[in-house]
Write a protein that binds this DNA or RNA. Structure first.
Lengths: 125, 125
DNA sequence: CAATCTATACTAAAAAATTAGTACTAATGA
DNA sequence: TCATTAGTACTAATTTTTTAGTATAGATTG
């Protein structure tokens, strides 16, 4: 079975976020955490994690009888790919309109804006 | 059939982009355009456009026998919602890390950066 | 050791997304 | 007017995503 995009689906992302945060984890670890937020079956989490192994987002190894899953790629890299995919699809690949939207769109505090400004100045230097 | 997210799927977005660009369009209009880029059946486009009517992204009216479909909401608004959804899912709702990524991530020309800086300055004033 | 619990494999099914075929109707052009 | 074509309705298949049940093998404990 071939996947169309190499980008994480929402549920896959949800699990990856847990594993990035916790580091190497068992299905149970992830299950317990997700369970706090919503109803989900243990086996569902396992299926998802195994799909993520298929997709090379996780790798697993047996430690003391139980499998431990860990990310194959750092979060930054995967999220970066997701951002590029999103910018590609929604803004035809140009980040500028997205930037403009974000800056306009009052989702940022003054401190945020100042930090961005700083960064831009550094870049422009 | 209930949809989980109210956000456009990739294929839906592809069609919406055409209709936002062209304004009120027939299935054939959209079909011809998409066809230039990839193989797709006329009826596929129609199905998608009717799904988009169900989802209230398009509305249609009969003009001279043929249906013409037009967006119910401006592109900016829908894309804004997509950005918010994305930021919510990927960055837990905070736009700042996305901004930082984009600014760092060499997808921007110097001119882009200057424009953003301008905007930020205005905002901060 | 038998009962129980845990992790995993195997299986599968519902829901959503994507794609498209077939048949019917209305317009049109010869 | 009749054959052809364009538009539409109706229907449905395939793929992907999401969710989860059942069975089994190994560990655990009373």
């Amino acid at each position: 079975m071939k996947t169309k995009t190499n980008v994480l689906t929402p549920q896959e992302l949800e699990i990856m976020k847990v594993v990035w945060e916790r580091g190497a984890s068992t299905v149970r670890d992830v299950y317990e955490l997700l369970r706090k937020k919503r109803k989900v079956a243990y086996t569902t989490v396992m299926t998802m994690m195994n799909i993520l192994v298929d997709k090379k987002h996780l790798q697993r190894e047996k430690v003391d009888g139980a499998y431990r899953y860990e990310p194959t790629k750092p979060k930054k890299q995967v999220v970066g790919a997701m951002v590029r995919d999103f910018v590609g699809r929604v803004f035809d690949g140009s980040a500028r309109p997205l930037l403009l939207q974000l800056v306009e769109d009052r989702h940022l505090t003054e401190a945020d804006l100042q930090e961005i400004e700083q960064l831009i100045e550094e870049k422009l230097k």
